[in-house]
């Protein structure tokens, strides 16, 4: 085992896959210096042909990614902020997502769209969002949301090897998070949830930084309520089986998600729980999400995105 932090885990996965497969390359804005760390130190090892600093042109970067992917490469496209997916929406939502379907499965587009997501640094409405629901609304895209260094590495390696476009959003607040991971190579399949903490009274489903809010809430409630925390790790594909199995045991559930509440991930997961496990529920599904407003910056941010106290309150509200 070795200790590694979150961004190092992503960079290590990229390096291993670039070493293993010469069709893998990185394209994006400032990927050589890497302000968000994920691609840091790869330039020294792989050179500018495979770690390509592009103009600030999200449509061109994403379009070139899709084009190269169709022609046999496995590009990793670094959008910097996940919010910038909107700048490249035509190419990611209409082209990458629909490539395989719209061309009868004859040419697919294996690529990864990398973006740093979420709040915590007061960066305001255009740099703090986790645009999960929007991705899920575009069938053809997969969505990976790692909450730990171990997951970040194993999921990135799988995402690169996947034959489809995968959105991989990592969280700003997790960059320095450390964990021991195996020295040897490992992969984590997409669509396999991880039980981050076992419990018996209530199930909390959360991804990315919200997993850590859930774990903190579970700690605060220790001795009073036994909380099980499930991290789906990818929302497409989504492992509902693990969630449903947990609910059969706890009969109560809270979904925590950093995306906007309205028409969001928690609403989708909540509805699926109703369809698959209604008879096991002893309380309505509760959700804690970002408020139905843009994400404010600076001091106002905390009123927009989920806080630990809200997760604690939601757990208490279903444990009557």
């Amino acid at each position: 085992m070795k200790e590694i932090n979150y961004w190092q885990a992503i960079a290590e996965a990229l390096a291993e896959e670039m070493e293993r497969d010469e069709t893998v390359f990185i394209i994006g804005e400032n990927v050589q210096e890497a302000p968000f760390m994920a691609t840091r130190e790869l330039i020294q090892r792989f050179g500018p042909e495979r770690v390509m600093d592009a103009p600030l042109s999200e449509l061109a970067i994403a379009g070139a990614t899709v084009g190269a992917a169709c022609a046999g490469y496995r590009p990793v496209c670094d959008l910097n902020f996940a919010d910038f997916i909107y700048c490249a929406a035509d190419e990611i939502l209409l082209k990458a997502a629909q490539q395989n379907f719209a061309h009868a499965g004859k040419v697919n587009a294996p690529c990864v769209f990398l973006g740093v997501a979420g709040g915590g640094f007061g960066t305001g409405p255009e740099h703090s969002h986790v645009p999960s629901a929007m991705v899920l609304n575009n069938p053809g895209l997969k969505l990976v949301l790692p909450s730990t260094p171990y997951d970040a590495k194993g999921l990135m390696k799988t995402a690169i090897r996947d034959n489809n476009p995968v959105c991989y959003f990592f969280h700003k607040k997790l960059m320095g998070l450390k964990q021991e991971i195996p020295e040897d190579e490992y992969l984590i399949p997409l669509g396999q949830a991880d039980i981050k903490r076992e419990g018996t009274d209530v199930t909390v489903v959360a991804t990315l930084y919200m997993v850590h809010h859930a774990l903190e809430a579970a700690k605060q409630l220790e001795g009073k309520i036994s909380v099980e925390v499930i991290d789906p790790r990818s929302l497409e594909p989504l492992d509902m089986d693990t969630i449903i199995e947990s609910i059969k045991k706890t009969n109560r559930v809270v979904v925590v998600d950093e995306d906007t509440q309205r028409c969001g991930v928690a609403a989708e997961i909540g509805q699926q729980i109703m369809e698959l496990a209604f008879d096991y529920l002893d309380a309505p599904v509760a959700r804690v999400c970002s408020a139905n407003m843009p994400v404010a910056g600076a001091e106002m941010e905390k009123y927009c995105i989920p806080q630990v106290e809200q997760v604690v309150a939601a757990i208490q509200s279903v444990c009557y």
Partner: peptide, 24 residues
């Protein structure tokens, strides 16, 4: 011929991607 799109303009960026692959 790998793809065609309905939103015109994408042709420019996708073809840049095909050309990037060609160069590589």
């Amino acid at each position: 011929i790998f793809a065609q799109g309905g939103t015109i303009g994408s042709a420019f960026v996708l073809s840049a991607g095909f050309a990037l692959a060609a160069k590589k």
